[in-house]
């Protein structure tokens, strides 16, 4: 089974209050509530993003500091190759800079927008570059846990523990469908094949799994 984020990243509970700023507030924010996006935190990212849309370079540094680690982590999950992942991370951040004026808060949070760009770009890249052959070796790699990421500087967070618990609350099929797609970059057809279940089943498990995850995480 594909291990989910925390395990694979070598979760260190000791510094779980380390912070992933794309979701929550800065460490200075005293009033963080576990499992909820800190409103001031996401507002801050959004404020920085709208300043970026006006060409504010200092605000772009804020966006980078808050988003780069989540972007890199997401991309790296899918692409695996560290150097390529760094390139894509930079491309995504530059895309954020370039298209910041097109971000629409009504469609979701700034963090969700940025990580969507990252995820989609990584998936697009994988699909356009590697088809059949590499896919085989990738699925072998995906099945292993741990690789060399433990040696990376990993940001642990309160959110990570929460995500772990919420993923655990899904059925196994829901969890595998969601994580193979999100962390593995597989299409629902590929997931169906990997899990040996019908395509329609995978589609509904992805939907139900995400709904459950959303409710569990208390977002929206």
């Amino acid at each position: 089974m594909l291990a989910w984020a925390g395990e694979q990243a070598g979760l260190r509970t000791g510094d779980e209050y380390g912070n992933v700023d794309i979701v929550a507030g800065s460490p200075a924010d005293g009033a963080r509530r576990p499992g909820r996006a800190n409103p001031s935190g996401s507002d801050e990212l959004q404020a920085a993003l709208s300043a970026v849309a006006r060409g504010d370079e200092a605000a772009f540094a804020v966006v980078y500091d808050r988003a780069a680690s989540a972007v890199l982590g997401t991309v790296r999950r899918i692409l695996r190759d560290p150097a390529q992942s760094e390139e894509v991370m930079q491309e995504v951040l530059l895309e954020v800079w370039r298209t910041a004026a097109r971000f629409d808060p009504a469609a979701g949070s700034a963090g969700a927008w940025i990580t969507m760009l990252a995820h989609r770009r990584a998936v697009d890249r994988v699909r356009s570059e590697q088809r059949a052959a590499q896919r085989e070796s990738r699925s072998a790699v995906a099945a292993e846990v741990g690789y060399d990421e433990v040696a990376e500087a990993v940001e642990a967070s309160l959110d990570r523990e929460r995500v772990r618990r919420c993923l655990d609350s899904l059925t196994e099929l829901q969890r595998e469908s969601v994580t193979l797609a999100y962390y593995g970059g597989y299409s629902y057809r590929e997931v169906a094949q990997l899990l040996g279940v019908a395509v329609g089943t995978v589609k509904t498990r992805m939907r139900d799994g995400l709904i459950r995850l959303r409710d569990c995480l208390g977002v929206d």
């Binding site: 992933v20 680690s69 989540a70 790296r76 995500v163 772990r164």
Partner: peptide, 12 residues
Amino acid sequence: EAALRLAAAAAI
């Protein structure tokens, strides 16, 4: 928003 949490949980 749920996917954002998945992304954040994978941060490097």
